[in-house]
Each structure stands twice: as C-alpha cells, then as structure tokens.
Amino acid sequence: MRVARWLVAIAILLILPPLLPSFLVVVMTEIAIVALFATAFNLLMGFGGMVSFGHAAYFALGAYAAAILVKQAAWPMLLGLAAAPFAAAAGALFFGFFIVRLTHTYFAMLSLAFAQIVFTVVFKWKALTGGDDGLLNVWPPAWLKSPLAYCYFTLVVVGLAMLALHAIVDSPFGYALRAIRENPRRARFIGVNVRRHQLQAFVLSGFFSGLAGGLFAFFNGSVFPDFAYLNKSFEPLVVALLGGVQSFFGPLAGAVGFKILETYIARQWPIYWPLFLGAAVVFVVVALPQGFVGLLQRRAWRTRTAR
C-alpha cells in the first residue's frame, strides 16, 4: 500500500513535466530546490530543535562553490555541483562548531551573525565572487539546458537527497537527535554527546542546503550576494513553518504552497507579496503553530479516533 502510493507519486512526477506549460516546469524545478533547502533546514528545526537564522550562508556557499569552480576553474558542471554540498558542509562545520555551543535565541543570533559575515565576504570579494554584480552565465551543459531536462535532473537529485534525509530522520542518529530536542539533559544521561551530535546534524543540514544552492546556481544561471542575505535565510523558515515543522514532508508541502502562491500573487501584485507572506507567518504563529500539514494531521487523527 505504502509502496504503491510512492510509485504513483513518482509516476506523476515523471509524466507531469512535459504536459505542463514551460513556465510551470520552471516553477516545479524551483519548488523542488526550495523543498530540499527547507527540508534540510527542518532537520535542525523540526527534529533537532535548533533554529538557524542564517541558513542562507550554506545555500550561498554551495551556490558560489559550484559557480566559482565552473566559471573560474573551468570544472565540468557535474563536478562543480558535486563540490557544492561539501563546500557548504565545510562552512557548516566551522561555524557550527561555535554555534552549537549556544542555545535557543543565542543559537539563532550567532548563526545570523555568521551568515552576515558570509554575505559581506561574498559582497566585497569582487575578484572571486564578482561582488554586487554576481557571477553570470553559470549554465549547465547543453544536454541539461532545456527547462524540461533541468527539471528532470533536479527532480532526480532532490529525490535522492530527500530519500537520504528521510533515512537520516528515521535512523538511530535521527532518534538521538529527537531525544536531544525533547530533553538535552536526559539525552546526556543516556550517553549522547549532545554538542557533538548537534554539530553533526548542523553539518548534515549544511550539506543538503549547499546541494540546494548548487542546483539553484545552474537553475538561475547566475549567483548573487542576496543568496546569503537575511531574506534567503528566512525562506526555509517560512516554508517549513507554513507546511509544519513536526512532519518530515511538512516543508515539502510548504514549498509547493509557497511557490505557487508566490508565482501567482507575486506576479500579479508584487507589492503585496511581502505583506501576504508576513501576514501568513503571523497568522500561522498565532493561530496554527503546527502549520497546515499539522492541521490536516490533527483532523485526520481526530476522524480516525472518532470512528
């Protein structure tokens, strides 16, 4: 039954893209990338109880690593993309070493501070990053250049990454991570080295955020310092929050909703988009802390128990 559902989902994803108008193929590609970024972020927030306000740093490290290697060092695209998550993981290891020493609000603030440093370095180091102008013409090779080809490519890469993340959440590592979220002190007394475990989760999260960044660089055809900016850091937060942080697929659902709304609202009334987004965040926090998926789950649970 479970397997059948999965096969149907995969089949739909494989058949759908050629049937869609090409701008929706592009939207679908972007949804996949945002979903990966938000799911990687949610490994920390939903499963580890750690909220980073600077995850754009790892997205940008991945994007810039891929772009720089391809543009400045003339690496082939696939190698550049493969390097992206490792560059981001290295950054996450370095920054995370300090960040996981703090908790709650201070954790969020130090992660933000490091992201601002990454942003400024990217912004100012013109020779390497192109500064404000970014790096342009970071396109994939000819065989991936059509929106449809890149959409399939992204779906496969993101699908594999999501599979890995799903396995991590359900693995012994993921159990211990949730135990830390629930009760760090108790976790220490059953033998978990809490900081080390948190750092490992941070690096894993950075790794997949970097992969999302790398995919986005070739999708966008260019990279800009905004990739490391505050707004980008809040994107996975908002997406995960809208979808629900308690469930693995919450961020995925959030990404679908977020991008579809963005595509229609932001295109029709670009001025009102941030207003809408802000109001949605305020509404979710005040009225729906479990996110929309959480709401649905609760409904489902209620109907099940009512029967």
Binding site: A164, A167, I168, D170, S171, P172, F173, G174, Y175, A176, R178, A179, R181, E182, N183, R185, R186, A187, F189, I190, G191, V192, H197, Q200, L204
Partner: peptide
C-alpha cells in the same frame, strides 16, 4: 525527565541505541 514527544517504545529504543553506540548510524531504520 523523559523524551515526551517520542513514544514510550522509542524512548527506550533510543537509550538502547545509544548504549550500544549505534546512535551515529545514519541510514538504518531505527
């Protein structure tokens, strides 16, 4: 002091996994 949002079974499984030093395993379903 327990892990409140984990099931009773998961609580004990987590403690056992840690005791047997398996909690760094990333890919086996726990």
């Amino acid at each position: 002091s327990i892990f409140r949002r984990l099931s009773t079974l998961e609580n004990v499984q987590t403690a056992l996994l840690t005791h047997h030093r398996r909690h760094h395993n990333l890919f086996r379903p726990a």
